[in-house]
Computed example of a mutant assay.
Amino acid sequence: MSENKTLREKDTEISLETAEKWTKKWKDPKNGIEAKNKVRAFLIPKINLEMVLAQGIDAARAYIGINDEGVQTLMLVGTRLNKDTLIYEDMLPKPGDSNPGNSKDGNETAIPPAIYDFSQPCPPQGDPSSPLN
């Protein structure tokens, strides 16, 4: 088992293209990760939470993927409630958007919508004294 690593103290934004690739890889039964090896939890850097909260969100959604190093990861995105459909819609970055501070419903956000990564999976990034581990 690998040893724990210190969380990165920087912006952990990733592209929509990368997030889509990682999510697709996670869903693929050929990804080589058996159920017994799938993670139970993720350690999430404080910066990830702060950046998502600064988007003026109604909620956040987490997607599971497998990054380019083959490590299971959690990707965080802000969401806004669509009052017509009652669906929490992901606030995703749009390539070439001339005003990235707007969400897809046209509401201004404090910072542009983005996807955040670099959580650390458990195991090995777990608390050995936690009954949840």
Rank of each mutant, 00 (worst) to 15 (best):
L74K: 02
N48L: 07
K36V: 15
A60S: 10
V52Y: 09
K83H: 14
R80H: 12
K36P: 06
R80P: 02
Y63R: 13
L43P: 02
D58R: 11
T73G: 03
V39E: 11
D58S: 09
L49V: 15
A59I: 06
I44G: 03
K38L: 05
L43N: 07
K46T: 12
A62K: 06
L53Y: 08
V71A: 12
I87G: 06
M75Q: 11
G56M: 01
N67W: 14
V39N: 13
L74N: 01
D58E: 09
L81T: 04
R61A: 10
A59W: 08
G78W: 02
L49W: 04
K83W: 09
L76F: 03
F42M: 07
I47R: 13
L76R: 11
G78H: 13
L43M: 11
L76D: 12
N37R: 10
L74C: 10
G56Y: 04
G65W: 01
G65A: 00
R80T: 13
L53D: 04
R80F: 02
A60D: 01
I44T: 09
L74I: 01
G65P: 07
L74W: 08
I64T: 12
D58H: 14
I47P: 01
G78Y: 04
V77F: 01
G70C: 00
V39A: 15
K46Q: 10
L74D: 00
I57Y: 00
E50C: 03
K38N: 07
I57A: 08
A60V: 06
D68P: 07
V52W: 12
L81G: 10
L43F: 06
M51S: 03
R61L: 05
R61Y: 07
L76Q: 06
Q55T: 07
Q72I: 05
I64C: 11
V77M: 12
E50W: 08
I44P: 03
Q72P: 15
E50R: 05
L53I: 06
R80C: 10
Q55C: 00
I44A: 05
N82D: 15
V77R: 11
A59V: 06
L81Y: 00
N82I: 06
L86R: 11
